[in-house]
């Protein structure tokens, strides 16, 4: 197997094992990849019609790699995406480059943080993203390949390679990719982007956090008993939200848990406000575990016997509906020093 440089952009690969050949350059995620031939990359770029393929849409640290549409298309091909997935990938990359995401920290930290990508609106349906049964798991091409393509972009363009650009102590399965759709059809509340001021037919949310933590409740027929369990998953010292009070929690309610809340008259805001009040730990416990590492100033004034919220504002508790039949929801705690971003998709050519 040989790899020769043909030009600034192109390589000549001879042999049968593309994974091994690219690994010699430090490229790849360890899984088999589709060869990004010029023909395939040009076909991928048809997913973002009428745009400049060589425009830099984001610069990604720590390598400060220039993410052009063409480079994103290259990585989308390698991950197995179809052209209709490219606009979602481009928008996710744009979102990750927002300063409040703190991508340099996300990529370089010893924490196991990875981007969670949620696809909203018309594109979820038209491009085949799945938000129903098993949405966070395997079995759907759009979910699997878009999440993987984003990780390949972080490895190749951002330089988040384990050991050099990614100091994660243990890594985590979400670093292979975590992408799914909001299950808007099964949600009793308006689509999530509207809750954060984004009014668009299609949108993407990125949230840099831990792997999802399951919340199981098959017994309850009222919101409080369900949400008390959600709060218990949020209120633990074993996550960064405990020592960084400004962090977000993404709460992915299954349709049945969400319906129980909505039937009782609870809005999305009611849910987040209740969780803000309920997901708390005693100040003494947090101080014993962490001191006052990165608390908001007002939290510094709390007495030892007071219960401390796991985040400083109910708006930091993000509620959306994901999944299918059954009574399991998830909590995705934040890495802490990062904020989620929701962006409309402008790359659909419409």
């Amino acid at each position: 197997m040989t790899v020769d440089t043909v030009s600034e952009d192109l390589l000549q690969v001879d042999g049968s094992d593309l994974v091994e050949a690219l690994a010699e350059h430090g490229w790849g995620d360890g899984l088999p990849m589709v060869a990004p031939t010029p023909t395939r990359v040009e076909a991928m770029l048809t997913g973002s019609p009428g745009t400049d393929p060589d425009e830099v849409v984001a610069v990604l640290p720590p390598r400060f790699g220039e993410a052009t549409r063409r480079i994103l298309a290259v990585n989308a091909v390698m991950a197995g995406c179809r052209p209709e997935h490219l606009p979602v990938l481009i928008t996710a990359v744009r979102a990750l480059a927002h300063p409040e995401v703190n991508l340099r920290g996300v990529n370089a930290t010893t924490h196991n943080v990875a981007p969670l990508v949620v696809v909203h609106g018309e594109v979820a349906r038209s491009a085949g993203y799945h938000g129903g049964r098993g949405a966070l798991g395997p079995g759907n091409r759009a979910n699997a390949t878009t999440g993987r393509a984003l990780r390949l972009v972080l490895l190749h363009v951002a330089g988040a390679t384990p050991g050099d650009g990614d100091a994660s102590t243990q890594g985590g399965p979400a670093k292979y990719g975590l992408c799914f759709a909001e299950n808007a059809d099964a949600s009793p509340w308006p689509i999530y982007p509207s809750a954060v001021g984004v009014d668009a037919p299609s949108a993407v949310t990125v949230h840099c956090g831990e792997a999802p933590h399951n919340v199981h409740d098959m017994e309850s027929d009222d919101p409080i008993r369900i949400l008390d369990k959600v709060a218990s998953a949020m209120a633990t010292t074993a996550q960064n939200n405990a020592c960084i009070s400004q962090g977000e929690h993404f709460v992915l309610l299954c349709p049945e848990h969400a319906a129980t809340c909505a039937v009782a008259g609870w809005s999305r805001r009611d849910v987040s406000s209740y969780l803000f009040q309920k997901a708390r730990l005693p100040a003494t416990e947090l101080k014993r575990a962490f001191g006052l590492r990165a608390w908001a100033p007002w939290m510094d004034q709390l007495a030892n016997d007071e219960l401390v919220p796991m985040t400083e504002h109910p708006d930091n508790i993000r509620i959306m509906v994901v999944g299918g039949p059954g009574k399991h929801s998830s909590v995705v705690p934040s890495w802490g020093m990062t904020r989620s971003v929701t962006l409309p998709i402008h790359e659909l050519g419409d």
Partner: peptide
């Protein structure tokens, strides 16, 4: 087989 490099160019670091 001819393929694209997956990493692309590097911008000027901020410092």
């Amino acid at each position: 087989m001819l393929i694209y490099r997956p990493d692309g160019g590097v911008a000027q670091p901020p410092a």
